[in-house]
């Protein structure tokens, strides 16, 4: 399977990705889009997307990119920690994200995700996350 196909599949099979309206950008192995829908809104007055919608979208993008990059060679990536910086309020519009895998070790991977709406140079949020790829104590997780 190509990396792009594995990335698209990882998002397509996730029920939560379906709930948020997240899908891979065609042919890409690291870019995804979250189509706007009213249930993503957290503040209906401003109006702005909920921080959790954006965080969930970025987490899904990171997990799918890692799953695609490590397919078959390692276990399913499990998040260890995620850190989100919110830079601008996200409008009720389509949101884009790109995952950058900064390091893949034997057991741990480190990923950076950028999320933006109309302008990639004006991101709405950034995320960094560590993932566990292989668990030595498999009973613990």
């Amino acid at each position: 399977m190509t990396t792009a196909q594995a990335f698209a599949d990882a998002l397509a099979v996730s029920p939560y990705a379906g709930f948020l309206g997240v899908e891979a950008v065609s042919g890409s192995s690291d870019r995804a889009m979250m189509r706007f829908s009213p249930p993503l809104v957290g503040n209906p007055l401003l109006p702005a997307l909920h921080g959790g919608s954006v965080a969930g979208f970025m987490e899904l993008t990171a997990t799918a990119a890692l799953t695609a990059a490590t397919q078959g060679t390692q276990g399913r990536p499990k998040p260890v920690d995620v850190s989100v910086a919110y830079l601008r309020s996200a409008r009720p519009a389509d949101t884009h994200a790109r995952a950058q895998i900064r390091k893949v070790g034997r057991r741990i991977a480190y990923v950076h995700v950028l999320a933006w709406q109309e302008d990639e140079a004006a991101p709405v949020a950034e995320m960094t996350a560590h993932f566990l790829l292989a668990d030595l104590d498999s009973t613990n997780n």
Binding site: S14, Y16, H50, A55, G56, E59, P79
Partner: peptide
């Protein structure tokens, strides 16, 4: 809820749902 699961078949709520709940 089944539609909030991260990995189909795992039965575990996605980390993003937990993030949303903690944020709120």
């Amino acid at each position: 809820r089944e539609d909030l699961v991260g990995d189909a078949g795992s039965g575990v709520l996605s980390g993003g749902v937990v993030s949303s709940l903690l944020d709120h």
